[in-house]
Design a binder for these strands. Structure first.
Lengths: 144, 144
DNA sequence: CCTGTAATTGAAAATTAATTTCAAAATAAT
DNA sequence: ATTATTTTGAAATTAATTTTCAATTACAGG
């Protein structure tokens, strides 16, 4: 935990940015979230802890965290983005039910392998990726 | 071509919707686009042909075309969605350069195979999917 | 073919996620 | 400490998408 915070501090300094309490607080909160999160829910979590961090700061900090490799923007739903901590997590796909909105996460090592292969071929420097699969979940199929 | 139009007409009727000239016109235009497209570019293409179809109608028709399997929303960039015709196309991934915005399409049969496998496992009815990979392209890496 | 009803249209207004502006506050190098 | 530069919160702005609404159109049944 603390080593991750330190890693972030070093990243920030290396980029010539300033290490602020707000940035650290946002990272700490994100590391405590287990599931996917969006800006709104993160903002409310912080607010509940009497933090006075603004949404603007969250919006400004997330791209830094993505670039630093701490989180990924994993899918969009209902018109806004969802993120999750990617450190130490196996790569996975998201099945999104367009009927009820439920999101199923599937771990898949092949996917990561497949992407790494293309990254090499294309000579891209990979930052983040996401595989969203839209469909109807078993429950919603029954109802209909 | 005409058989696709007929297929769409049948889909529309089966859903209890009305088959309008606007909906047909939008589909015809989309089938002529080779590359990815967004709402704005589709609207301008139609406008150039003196069509008076509104953006609202385009926004309303795209979800129907997705559900019918004609197109997919393949990625988001610059805050808006891009689509492409998926009929007869091999599945593929999109490498998006976050620096210059360039999009590289990569065909990959394994990806489709991988997704079909999970679809079966999860008992989902698959509608559409997209794999976006964000990174820095070779050209932009050099500059830096 | 008319006729009635329910869906669809275009235009404009509304919504809303995300970005930008700006003055005040905070960081960090000297 | 001093100072230049960055970052902050709050509010304003932007821009994609959705919704509203009155007029129009599709099409089923007579």
């Amino acid at each position: 935990m603390e080593n991750l915070i330190e890693e972030f501090r070093i990243f920030i300094k290396k980029k010539g940015l300033k290490y602020t309490p707000e940035r650290e607080e946002i990272l700490r909160e994100i590391l405590e979230v287990e599931d996917h999160f969006d800006v709104e829910s993160l903002y409310l979590r912080l607010k509940n802890k009497n933090s006075k961090i603004s949404k603007a700061s969250i919006y400004r900090t997330l791209p830094i965290l993505i670039e630093a490799g701490f989180i990924q923007e994993v899918y969009k739903q209902g018109g806004h983005s969802f993120y999750e901590v990617t450190l130490n997590k196996a790569p996975h796909l998201h099945f999104i039910c367009i009927s009820c909105g439920r999101v199923d996460e599937v771990i898949d090592k092949e996917l990561n392998f497949l992407i790494k292969k293309h990254e090499k071929d294309k000579k891209y420097k990979l930052l983040t990726y996401h595989l969203e699969i839209f469909g109807i979940c078993p429950d919603c199929r029954e109802v209909k």
